[in-house]
Write a protein that binds this DNA or RNA. Structure first.
Lengths: 169, 169
DNA sequence: GGTGAAAGGTCATTAAG
DNA sequence: CTTAATGACCTTTCACC
């Protein structure tokens, strides 16, 4: 149901070489151009492909320090007001409500360790935040990736016989 | 300052509407199209724009559960061998070496809470991993974003933010 | 600024579930 | 009968020189 093997190869190709156009992709995959377009449309419509925007590297912008901050919130007030305030801070790159002793997990970036202290202070000053404990990312062992997932998802076929022939070479 | 205000608006535009071409972008920004192309080339060369690949949503692929797992490793062996093994697991979306009591922080996804248990078991079974403690993401309050950072780096304000510190320039 | 080359749209046809 | 793939047409638009 989610995606089939052709979708997987399509995503793989566009991830590896975003510059290839629809026409070139159709040639390489051995399918019609309209097919590729239809697949891309469907993947976009279903939300599998969220977008084609440029991926920005915070480090290249000068924000070389990444940290993960776990916030404990005051019971009263809920998460949303805090999240709204966190959203005002550019250095907060991501925020999740989580299980466990912490209430929220934020990914933040900073220009330096000194700057990181400033950012953390900003978070602590946010109304509703009771405590913050942070860990610094020393190295990114595995950068954010989804390709293995795509291959996994494309490998499992929900129904029998979606494909009509041997894979083109 | 790695990027200027024009770069910022350029990135902003391509993030909002990746479909706009160089020509259309130059028209909207009121600059020559060669300028836009040169800027894009420079941003790509400098690594600010890492790529234009499609953004895949794991949830749309059926991996609706996200968790953050902190691993404690055995002192002997180091991080890299563990990272290499983690990289073999498709559900491991990201991995960082971190400071603090934990040694590595991984972002993982799973098809369900039951499936999550399976994935965690896989991680614990990785040679060199001593302990794993995980928190589940209940809600994504702030999805991964870089635009506010771009605006900040470009010297612009993103909104009614609490910005202290000396303004650049 | 001009030009070759795609993208994007529509359509009729064919095949398969 | 509904969905999908295909090849063909077309016009607009872009990227490169």
């Amino acid at each position: 149901m989610p995606i089939d093997e052709l979708d997987g190869r399509l995503i793989e190709m566009f991830t590896a070489e975003p510059r290839v156009g629809v026409l070139e992709a159709s040639r390489r995959l051995g399918v019609a151009r309209g097919t590729v377009q239809a697949r891309l449309d469907r993947l976009s419509r279903d939300g599998v492909i969220a977008g084609f925007g440029p991926e920005i590297d915070p480090a290249a912008l000068g924000y070389g320090v990444t940290a993960f901050v776990t916030l404990q919130l005051r019971q009263a007030g809920g998460h949303d007001p805090v999240a709204r305030r966190l959203a005002q801070v550019p250095e907060v790159i991501e925020a999740h409500t989580i299980t466990g002793p912490g209430d929220m997990l934020c990914r933040i970036v900073a220009r330096s360790n000194t700057d990181l202290q400033r950012v953390i202070d900003v978070l602590v000053d946010v109304a509703g935040v009771e405590r913050a404990s942070s860990v610094i990312s020393l190295a990114t062992q595995i950068p954010y990736r989804t390709l293995p997932l795509v291959r996994e998802a494309a490998g499992r076929r929900s129904g029998p016989g979606q494909n009509d022939g041997p894979p083109p070479r």
